[in-house]
């Protein structure tokens, strides 16, 4: 769905006044992006679906506190990150099991020239296991900052706005995450 900036602002203004039809437009527009981030944060489909619903419900209840000058997507992502961390901590035990299962869903970046051979696949499973292990060792801020930078391609400035941190603190979270991943993957090289 394409909306120009003026239309988007009008929809947002109506939603903020409690117009649920206008809010529906926002849900339809942002749901797939929200799901993608929620999945990358939680690593699990069911948890991601829960985060999607919880995030929109929270967003609706908090719309009155959204500052219209801010970017709605950034504001919504912040809620998604908060909900993801909340849910992951509430379900840490279940998460440990789910992460083992979700290893099957991890894949390496395919080389354009040729498909992965059996050796490559075995290695990718090991890489997947090591990365998943390293990711589970990241703190909530490290995981959020790294996911937004590495997987979502968000800039440090944007991530800082989402996490409510200064850019230097955001950078340090990314640096620590990268260091932990490098240690986890160093043995493979």
């Amino acid at each position: 769905m394409q909306m120009d900036a003026i239309e988007a602002a009008a929809v947002l203004a109506r939603a903020r006044q409690g117009d649920s039809d206008a809010f529906r437009v926002l849900v339809e527009r942002h749901s797939r992006n929200v799901f993608r981030l929620a999945f990358r944060m939680t690593g699990n489909e069911q948890d991601a679906e829960d985060v999607v619903q919880e995030s929109f419900l929270r967003a609706y209840r908090q719309l009155g506190r959204f500052e219209s000058r801010a970017n709605f997507g950034t504001w919504l992502y912040r809620i998604v990150v908060n909900c993801s961390v909340d849910l992951m901590r509430a379900r840490q035990a279940r998460q440990a099991q789910a992460r083992i299962e979700s290893l099957d869903e991890l894949d390496v970046i395919p080389t354009p020239a040729e498909g992965p051979g059996p050796e490559r696949l075995a290695q990718s499973a090991e890489i997947g296991a090591r990365v998943a292990d390293a990711m589970s060792g990241l703190s909530p801020l490290e995981r959020a900052a790294f996911t937004l930078r590495h997987y979502e391609g968000r800039s440090i400035d944007e991530i800082s706005r989402m996490l409510g941190l200064r850019t230097s603190a955001t950078k340090h979270s990314v640096f620590r995450a990268v260091r932990k991943l490098r240690i986890a993957l160093a043995v493979l090289k």
Partner: peptide, 15 residues
């Protein structure tokens, strides 16, 4: 760069 390229792309289920 080699290490970061190894970090697998998380395959997000299609919606």
């Amino acid at each position: 760069a080699e290490t970061l390229q190894l970090v697998p792309v998380i395959d997000v289920p299609e919606r």
